[in-house]
Simulated scan of single mutants.
Amino acid sequence: MRGAEKRLTVLEALHEREPGTRQGWVVDGDLPAGFRKSAESVARDGLVEWADGATRSLLSARGGRPVAWAVRITALGRDVRRYAGAAAPGQAGPGRGERLVKLRPAQMEALRVAVGVADELARKPAPGFLERVRTADFDPVANRWCMYLTLRHIDSVAYVFYLRGLCGSASEANHFARDYGVIYRIESESGVPTLMSVPGLRPVRAVRAR
């Protein structure tokens, strides 16, 4: 699990268990096995704090059982959680004919290179595609760039990854094929690059390369 994802996972777990606690302290018995190790790494970042001996004694008396340790979110941790929530993609649904596409950072970098030379490409990106790339949202928990795209936009994404593969790196195209079922290949009949469905490598005729 990546560092950012671990931090947010710990913060969310504590936030969910806060209702009904004493001053936000979540005790050991209310947390899953192995949580303490994750919380320790987050504590080093100042996002959570540990209860001292006196606080543990009060929590033990209140709960009617010994409390070996307890942890709560700090003010910094609350700010991080709020910021991450604001930075995550909005909840508005896709428009007509759109679907949510989540791209790895390397894939997004490939698209940004294409945006920079879009006017010089013989095969222009689909209308609206450049704006979708420029306004994409970053999900820090998933470590993915998120966009709502039409099939024509998805065609443009796959074409950029095809160009990237011909320059040396095919991983972006291969990941996209596994995640979204399409990839560019040379069609045997026409001999031109064509968006293909995976598996089967059948042309996606509605958005065939021009």
Rank of each mutant, 00 (worst) to 15 (best):
R104F: 08
L11I: 01
E18W: 11
Q107T: 05
E120M: 11
R56E: 03
V26C: 00
A126G: 12
R82N: 08
Y148E: 13
L14V: 06
L151E: 05
G128S: 02
G53V: 10
G85N: 14
P32R: 08
Y180D: 05
A68G: 11
S41Q: 07
L59C: 03
G46V: 01
E109F: 04
G24V: 00
A136W: 01
R65L: 05
L163D: 12
T74L: 00
K37V: 13
R17N: 05
F138S: 02
Q91K: 11
R96C: 14
E49G: 05
S188A: 14
K37T: 15
E49Y: 04
T194A: 11
R164I: 07
P203K: 01
A177G: 03
Y83P: 07
I154Q: 03
E98V: 02
R44I: 08
R56L: 15
G3K: 10
D45R: 15
V71T: 08
R152N: 11
S190C: 04
L31N: 06
V133E: 07
P140A: 04
S156N: 10
S38K: 04
S38P: 02
D79V: 06
S60W: 06
A177E: 07
P127H: 10
R36P: 03
E172F: 01
R185N: 11
T194I: 08
G46Y: 03
S171P: 04
R210A: 09
P32C: 09
G53F: 04
E16F: 13
V160W: 00
A70Y: 02
L201A: 15
R72A: 04
G24D: 00
P32D: 07
A43Q: 14
R144P: 01
M108C: 05
R104W: 11
G97Y: 11
I186F: 14
V42P: 01
V113P: 10
K6I: 15
C167I: 15
S60K: 07
R123W: 05
F35W: 07
C167W: 13
